[in-house]
């Protein structure tokens, strides 16, 4: 090589240009390799945990009273179940909701994108665990809650603060967890 000796700054750059690609690629392989097989479907959780329950004012079924913000300031922790008659996992979790009710838990329901007749038929078939049911016909309240699917279940404490969000259907093994969260919220 007939080149003039390189200044230190240049040689640093030269080395970067020569070894940089290999290094970057090694980092890439290690990183990607460590992530293979991981669940990439992002679960979008509500960012309102720890925040007050947003204002809710939903009509009820038939002549029954609907769901309003007042229902969350009773001094006692409650569950809010976001569900729909057209949602199959919601049928799967019905027995668990019934069990929670039997254990003395207040469960309120928000029926999303649903016709009143369908909700009534759903509750008739699968049992009605709800103290109050609000009809969220256009899904706007669901968005207000930061919920992105059905079914989802929120734990709200007696002061109306959202304490916990359960995504997906409640299975028998989730009952203890929900009860613990409710107890925690009641403290």
């Amino acid at each position: 090589m007939t080149e003039t000796p390189e200044t230190p700054a240049r040689s640093w750059l030269t080395r970067l240009a020569i070894y940089g690609p290999l290094l970057l690629f090694a980092v890439f392989v290690v990183f990607v390799g460590s992530q293979l097989g991981r669940e990439t479907r992002v679960t979008v959780t509500s960012k309102l945990i720890g925040q007050p329950m947003p204002a809710v004012n939903l009509p009820g079924l038939g002549g029954a009273p609907g769901l309003t913000s007042a229902d969350f300031k009773t001094g006692k922790p409650v569950l809010v179940n976001v569900f729909a008659s057209w949602c199959i996992p919601c049928r799967v979790e019905a027995p668990q909701l019934a069990r929670l009710t039997a254990m003395g838990v207040t469960v309120n329901g928000i029926a999303v994108r649903d016709a009143p007749d369908d909700v009534a038929a759903f509750l008739k078939t699968n049992g009605n665990p709800f103290t109050r049911v609000g009809l969220d016909k256009t899904g706007q309240t669901q968005i207000t809650l930061g919920s992105s699917g059905v079914p989802e279940t929120f734990v709200i404490d007696g002061r109306g603060i959202i304490r916990y969000q359960h995504i997906g259907e409640i299975r028998p093994e989730h009952i203890a967890l929900l009860m613990a969260k409710l107890t925690e919220a009641g403290r």
Binding site: A17, I18, P21, L22, F25, V29, V32, G33, L36
Partner: peptide
């Protein structure tokens, strides 16, 4: 299929890594 992903990743590491290593050794 993670197993297929792993197989392909090994191939990538060999080929790309090998070529970049050769580049680093010879580039200077």
């Amino acid at each position: 299929d993670p197993a297929r992903g792993a197989f392909l990743l090994v191939l990538l590491a060999l080929y790309i890594g090998g070529a970049l290593l050769l580049y680093a050794l010879r580039a200077s």
